[in-house]
Design a protein around this nucleic acid. Structure first.
Lengths: 213, 213
DNA sequence: GTGTTCAGGTGTACGGCGTACACCTGCTGC
DNA sequence: GCAGCAGGTGTACGCCGTACACCTGAACAC
């Protein structure tokens, strides 16, 4: 049932996932689902557990702790990208399931094993935010090639009104003139800030940083 | 009408905000609202514009660019905290309104004025993510004192199952034994990662970092 | 074999939602 | 005096989650 729900959400989007639709796919009456989950929230929790279950376990320790963390987080990212609805659902949750807590715990363990203090690790986890689960909420990530390129007139108005934005967008357009797709390289952006954070953490660790001097 | 919607969401929460309820508050029939907004999405967009409008404009440049950015982002944070629903609604949006774009543009301007290259600024904006608007998606931020402290037995089970999590939570509990409220200091956590990022950006700027060598 | 239990499927119904569509009202400018 | 129009009204549709009472058939004890 959870598999069916995940598959349905993958195919038709999370907004189209209703108890009724899911029941229909399963060839069953809507209320039958309630013998397996208490309510829709619990269904969503279960679906997230499936996704989190797809994340690779921590790699055997070798070299820098940052490599291990990086690798795992990129695995999480891959899982989240396979199920585009998962990040939005995750954001809407108010309490973590045991499966998610298990993941968080092992993630914390990777920092601790890397030599970060309890104190630093705590703040590090906060700083990572949703990145710990492989996604960052890019405000208004534009789905590729959704909007048609604006006509020259409105483009000129845009440039006048939002000079800094247009400075960046023209730079991007120029940079990947050779590449097929236009727009930002989400993977690059994700790794950029991930590495920035991990390097920052490492510097604090070396300095023996503490929040209470 | 937008003010009424914002006030209603502030009081009763975003989930309780329906076109019907809002109409009722305004002493009007639900369909009357559709003479002012095309649909509920547009209403939500308008409400966000109100919130974003509450953010202070950039402070007059003085000293480090980081101070100016920091100050503005903390102002955004205050606005977002006044309207707890705003961050969740923001996350659900797919396209920015002109008001939000204006804000983003001026934010980019602050980085550019600070001496960051177009290239660096672009990635910096991505790295900031939702922090640019004053919030970070803390996964599962626990509302203060929502859950009762678990009985000793389940606490012991928790500690056994999630050793690293409990290591941190006991540390937190110990640290603010003197303070009234327990739990994390969200403001501290926010500023911790904000400063970590800003300092990271500044280092890259000094080094003349570029994504295309 | 008979009766009990129970996991799990069924059918009906309720109250909520967003909103399409046709209609009405009262003010404005000519 | 009247057209135009901004804005409020009433009805209705199709969707949603889910409460509640009911049914079915297999597992099992005796």
């Amino acid at each position: 049932m959870l598999r069916a729900a995940v598959a349905l959400a993958d195919e038709t989007g999370i907004d189209a996932l209703s108890m009724r639709k899911l029941a229909q796919v399963l060839g069953v009456v809507p209320m039958a689902l309630y013998k397996h989950v208490a309510n829709k929230e619990e269904l969503l929790d279960g679906m997230l557990d499936v996704v989190v279950g797809e994340i690779d376990p921590p790699a055997a320790a070798a070299g820098d702790w940052r490599d291990a963390v990086r690798q795992r987080i990129l695995s999480a990212r891959r899982a989240l990208l396979r199920h585009p609805w998962a990040s939005r659902v995750l954001e809407s949750r108010t309490a973590p399931t045991p499966v998610v807590m298990q993941y968080m715990d092992s993630m914390i363990g990777m920092f601790r094993t890397g030599g970060l203090s309890v104190d630093l690790t705590h703040h590090v986890m906060h700083a990572m935010g949703s990145r710990i689960l492989g996604f960052s909420q890019e405000l208004f990530a534009t789905p590729p090639s959704e909007v048609a390129p604006p006509d020259p007139e409105t483009a000129r108005q845009m440039a006048a009104r939002f000079p800094y934005i247009s400075e960046i967008t023209t730079r991007i357009a120029h940079d990947d003139a050779s590449v097929v797709g236009s727009g930002c390289d989400d993977q690059f952006e994700f790794e950029f800030s991930l590495d920035l954070l991990l390097d920052g953490f490492e510097q604090l660790r070396r300095r023996g940083w503490t929040s209470r001097p």
